[in-house]
């Protein structure tokens, strides 16, 4: 993959070391209806701009990172 993730524990690493955990999203409340849950579980914003994402350093320190990444250019601004 054509970008690196600067893991706070391990330094710049190849994203192949990580598991992608999807967009950071707020789960619906306990009483939310099926529609809200489906939206949450199966739909993504997936806009070609910066978004917050979860990445798990599976082949590294085993930490979950919140990353702000531009999904069009792979530019990462915040880890």
């Amino acid at each position: 993959m054509a970008f690196l993730i600067n893991c706070p524990n391990c330094g710049h690493r190849n994203p192949y070391e990580f598991t992608f955990g999807g967009e950071c999203k707020q789960a619906p409340g306990q009483d939310a209806d099926m529609k809200a849950w489906c939206e949450y579980l199966f739909f993504y914003e997936n806009m070609p701009v910066f978004q917050d994402e979860w990445w798990y350093h599976a082949m590294g320190c085993g930490e979950w990172l919140k990353i702000r990444r531009n999904i069009a250019t792979h530019e990462i601004v915040e880890v």
């Binding site: 598991t19 955990g21 979860w54 798990y56 599976a58 085993g62 930490e63 979950w64």
Partner: peptide, 14 residues
């Protein structure tokens, strides 16, 4: 084991 570790720690982190 690896998936469980990932799953558990996700909740811990969230």
């Amino acid at each position: 084991a690896p998936v469980t570790e990932e799953w558990f720690s996700r909740w811990r982190r969230e």
